[in-house]
């Protein structure tokens, strides 16, 4: 997969929107590693939740030009940046300012991607709408992720796949257990140590 151009973004904008970092690129690397599987699914609709700069969903759209890519973010400035990133890289795309995926119809998306706010913080730190919302994850760094997990069974298409980035502090085993109760099997696609963080990307599909 190709890395999207980012030369349209003014660095100062990253005061308000999460700047692509190792975790963003790990998610792209995970999708690249799973390219064969993704080509077989031949997705029609791909959704990135909390797309920030839009680099991940744009990379996906560049690899799958027959797929309509859409993203959400709770931060309006992130929505505008995601759209400009997709436009700069000629990806057919739309974005909605939304909390997770609450305002979408059911069973639509063949692929859902999420690089959540995963940093372990106090509960009161998470739940905002600005740059803090891009990293503050509350208890176990999982408060936002767990809210999304609840919605995945309804919003994912029946043969769809959900890709989720986590760090070891998020206790991925618990996430696997929650998703298994919803009837999903899981697989670790990629894992990498970045400074003091052990980052991994999980894939969930209906078992």
């Amino acid at each position: 997969m190709e890395t999207p151009y980012q030369d349209h973004i003014n660095k100062a904008e990253f005061d308000h929107v999460y700047e692509p970092a190792e975790d963003s690129f790990l998610l792209i690397d995970a999708l690249e590693r799973d390219l064969h599987y993704l080509s077989e699914i031949n997705p029609t609709f791909c959704l990135e939740v909390g797309s920030g700069s839009g680099i991940v969903v744009t990379a996906f759209g560049m690899a799958f030009p027959n797929c309509f890519c859409i993203s959400t973010d709770i931060n309006f400035k992130a929505c505008t940046m995601s759209r400009s990133t997709a436009e700069r890289n000629k990806v057919i795309f739309d974005t909605v300012n939304m909390d997770l995926i609450t305002a979408f119809n059911d069973n639509l998306f063949d692929i859902i991607l999420f690089n959540p706010p995963y940093v372990v913080t106090e509960s009161k730190e998470c739940g905002g709408k600005d740059i803090t919302a891009s990293w503050a994850g509350g208890l176990k760094g999982r408060e936002i992720t767990d809210k999304l997990l609840d919605m995945i069974p309804k919003k994912l298409a029946s043969k769809g796949a959900f890709y989720l980035l986590l760090i070891r502090e998020n206790i991925p085993e618990e996430v696997i257990e929650i998703m298994s109760k919803y009837g999903f099997k899981s697989e670790i696609i990629i894992e990498r140590r970045v400074r003091n963080e052990q980052q991994l990307v999980l894939k969930f599909i209906k078992s």
Partner: peptide, 14 residues
């Protein structure tokens, strides 16, 4: 606004 729908709701509305 600017081509982007704002579907955010307050906690009391959800």
């Amino acid at each position: 606004s600017k081509g982007i729908p704002n579907m955010l709701l307050t906690e009391a509305e959800v």
